[in-house]
């Protein structure tokens, strides 16, 4: 079950990278970021962690991984961020909310919509965290680590 989730999330994230015209040589990495984020989210929700908390955790993991990949492969971080974040977008909840609005069940619709907004907020929080990590990496304490990544970077890219 978890295996099929891993494969589908990898293909979905890589597919999104193609839709956004990401460079060909980072497609695998985009898929991996999406897969890692979705893995964290699925494992947490299976263990009955609240979806909002699970989303924050997954978004933070996505942020950290994208940050490392961006430094490593010398590409703008946005490429990895987007692929990783997309699976976490509360599409299902937003859909259910909209369906209830259409069916005139406003109580349920507002509940679901509030939840969708909360999860979107959680995603935003995770992205903010990515910015904080970026600044930590830039600060002097992490210089050694950064130059280590840079040496492994794809030269001439």
């Amino acid at each position: 079950m978890i295996f099929e989730q891993l494969v589908t999330s990898f293909v979905a994230a890589a597919g999104f990278a193609i839709i956004f015209n990401a460079p060909k040589n980072v497609l695998i990495q985009c898929g991996s970021v999406g897969m890692i984020g979705w893995f964290v989210y699925t494992v947490l929700t299976i263990n009955r962690v609240d979806a909002v908390v699970a989303t924050i955790a997954a978004a933070v993991v996505v942020a950290v991984t994208s940050q490392v990949f961006a430094k490593w492969f010398r590409t703008p971080i946005i490429i990895f961020n987007v692929s990783g974040i997309i699976p976490l977008v509360p599409g299902g909840l937003a859909y259910d909310a909209m369906r209830n609005f259409v069916g005139n069940d406003y109580d349920m619709a507002v509940q679901l919509a509030a939840r969708a907004i909360l999860i979107s907020g959680a995603i935003a929080l995770g992205l903010v965290f990515s910015e904080i990590i970026n600044q930590m990496i830039r600060s002097a304490k992490w210089k050694r680590l950064q130059s280590k990544y840079d040496r492994n970077g794809m030269n001439g890219y």
């Binding site: 099929e4 989730q5 494969v7 589908t8 999330s9 293909v11 979905a12 890589a14 597919g15 999104f16 193609i18 839709i19 015209n21 990401a22 460079p23 060909k24 979705w38 699976p87 599409g91 299902g92």
Partner: peptide, 23 residues
């Protein structure tokens, strides 16, 4: 564009199927 349109459409189609499984 880095990818031809038909590649993008195939990618979008596959991603759609995968999202249906993920949800």
């Amino acid at each position: 564009l880095a990818y031809p349109r038909y590649v993008q459409i195939i990618a979008a189609a596959l991603a759609s199927g995968c999202f249906a499984i993920m949800f």
